[in-house]
Design a protein around this nucleic acid. Structure first.
Length: 226
DNA sequence: CCATTAACGAGCT
DNA sequence: AGCTCGTTAATGG
């Protein structure tokens, strides 16, 4: 369905059996989180695993001047956090709820016990981590060090694949975003973002219907993505 | 190429 | 009235 597999795009829900899921579900603690809440930051590293039940969470990094850069958007079924031995995110990463969100919290101990009881899960984790590493290489090579146009297109494509649906080439982004929001996510200014957005509209990468829609094929070709 | 600065109208609170 | 937002344009790194 969604073929842009990204760093920390982990859908354990896809890979676990029903029973395994039930076990995790029983052990985990449900927690609602309001939109805008910073769930994890370098100041408050959480020794736990988060299962994202419902909502959207943005993973980003920030430099000394407070400029942000969005690494990934997580949606229902993704998993993130750290558990000592296994790090599913970076320790310098921030996680912020973009919408009202339901999280399940799994403690370090519970997770390790679960792995001991279900060795197959360890193998799946290796798969997940190695594919994340691969995605990260591709990501940094093709996007991270490139200009605002690339970063912006990449973000919009990612957002559309996570939140929207596809009609012909056009993938919608079902999210209310100001130019300022977008600028923060790609480490650019509001002005530049505004300029590049209208440029992309002229060039046919983008159109505005309700929120935004991107021409997915055209964008992927431009970014050199499969 | 892009941040910065400035400036302006529109819209929201 | 004052702030946020989108937009354009000049300048300079």
């Amino acid at each position: 369905m969604d073929k842009l597999t990204m760093l920390s795009h982990i859908s354990l829900f896809d890979e676990l059996s029903k029973e395994e899921l039930m076990t995790i579900d029983k052990m985990s603690e449900m927690r609602p989180v309001k939109k805008g809440t910073v769930i994890v930051s370098p100041d408050h590293p959480m020794e736990a695993l988060f299962l994202l039940k419902q909502g959207q969470v943005r993973l980003y990094q920030m430099n000394e001047e407070g400029k942000q850069f969005t690494m990934d958007i997580l949606v229902d079924g993704n998993i993130f956090g750290e558990t000592g031995s296994v790090t599913l995110t970076d320790d310098q990463i921030y996680a912020e709820a973009m919408t009202d969100t339901y999280l399940c919290l799994l403690s370090h101990n519970d997770f390790e016990n679960f792995i001991e009881a279900n060795p197959k899960i360890a193998l799946k984790l290796i798969d997940i981590l190695s594919s994340r590493l691969k995605d990260f290489y591709s990501f940094s090579e093709k996007i991270a060090l490139r200009d605002v146009k690339h970063r912006l297109l990449y973000l919009l494509l990612m957002l559309s694949e996570k939140t929207g649906h596809r009609k012909n080439n056009w993938q919608s982004i079902e999210m209310k975003l100001t130019h300022q929001d977008i600028a923060h996510m790609i480490g650019a200014t509001r002005e530049t973002t505004s300029t590049v957005l209208s440029q992309l509209k002229k060039e046919g990468f983008l159109k505005k219907v309700r929120y935004f829609s991107v021409d997915a094929d055209k964008t992927k070709e431009y970014l050199g993505l499969p």
